[in-house]
Design a protein around this nucleic acid. Structure first.
Lengths: 176, 176
DNA sequence: CCGAATATGTCAGTGATGTTGACATATTTT
DNA sequence: AAAATATGTCAACATCACTGACATATTCGG
């Protein structure tokens, strides 16, 4: 190694990260993968006159039936004013019902209706299929590697909220 | 197995996918992982008065210096009217320059300026750090598993566009 | 060479989704 | 009874997408 090379190498490792240090490969893969992953339900939603916001709400209400408005806001990290418009449409459309909290009657528990469960399933299906395709030749161990990676990409509080979601708590019994 | 259980099992495997068949775990992990992954640059962008759209543009111009407007539109899958406003801000702000295509002078090649390269790096850094953290104890083989998963989640044309991007083509020489 | 096709830019209007701030109502807590 | 909490609602605004229409410069094909 010439002294110039040594100096250059030192300067690089010393101060700024340069292009070579940045993980552009995975950055771009995440961008494209997520965009395409969301493109399937987006098409379906357009037919209902709904958007992504509706998808997220109907998904989480289905996954965590009975969650309160405050819990949903915390999960989605949006403001109640943002939630209001979209949630109202889902309630008016008969996809979600509100029931007063059993302990605290100020709360509104959100429950999916049969129609809401159906919608959530419909939207989840192409995404689940896409995942299944991507994992088609993946061993259980490698699936675990992927899941660990995704969990480790999250902020701790997101991780906590995933952990809080029961294994399989999709509403089935629910009130219509 | 009782006959009732057998019947139930049959009915389920026969017709619709039900809750148990949907890969909710990875669906939600992708949602939270991607949201948190984008939250870092979002904060920085706010300080510049920029948004996510600026991020995507400055990123890809940096990664594929000299790409044309049409190529960028194809990559981002947005309309030219959507691109125009945001691109104009980046040009006016001195982050990107346009040069007439060498062969076809109707085309506008997009190149990052030094300032643009700096911005792209700044935005990529927290994302790269997050990835590095998530992969900290991951073997090269397992990294490959994760990359393959992400690639397999994409639509074929997205995959083609990633393949088209040279390994390390971030502009360094570029014109100011 | 001229007309068609192409690459880009721009104006105008609209929609979905997010934000802040302010205030109202019902209920629970202290 | 007063304060805090959970929710709902009104109003204004920003970002980023869309469609449709049209202008300009350049290249291409006959």
């Amino acid at each position: 190694m010439t002294s110039e090379q040594a100096t250059a190498a030192f300067a690089e490792s010393e101060t700024e990260k340069t292009a070579a240090d940045i993980d552009f490969a995975i950055i771009e893969q995440l961008f494209f993968a997520y965009r395409d992953f969301t493109s399937d339900p987006d098409k379906q939603l357009a037919q209902y006159g709904f958007g992504r916001a509706h998808h997220r709400i109907v998904h989480f209400v289905n996954r965590r039936p009975g969650l309160t408005v405050a819990e949903l806001l915390e999960l989605l990290k949006i403001t109640k004013q943002s939630l209001a418009r979209v949630l109202k449409q889902l309630i008016d459309g008969g996809y979600i019902v509100q029931v007063p909290g059993p302990r605290d009657r100020r709360q509104r528990e959100l429950h999916p209706t049969e129609k809401g469960r159906k919608l959530a399933m419909d939207l989840a299906m192409p995404q689940s299929r896409r995942i299944a395709r991507a994992l088609a030749e993946t061993s259980p161990r490698d699936r675990a590697v992927i899941e660990r990676f995704l969990l480790d990409m999250m902020n701790p509080d997101s991780r906590a909220q995933i952990a809080a979601a029961p294994k399989d708590r999709v509403s089935r019994t629910g009130q219509e």
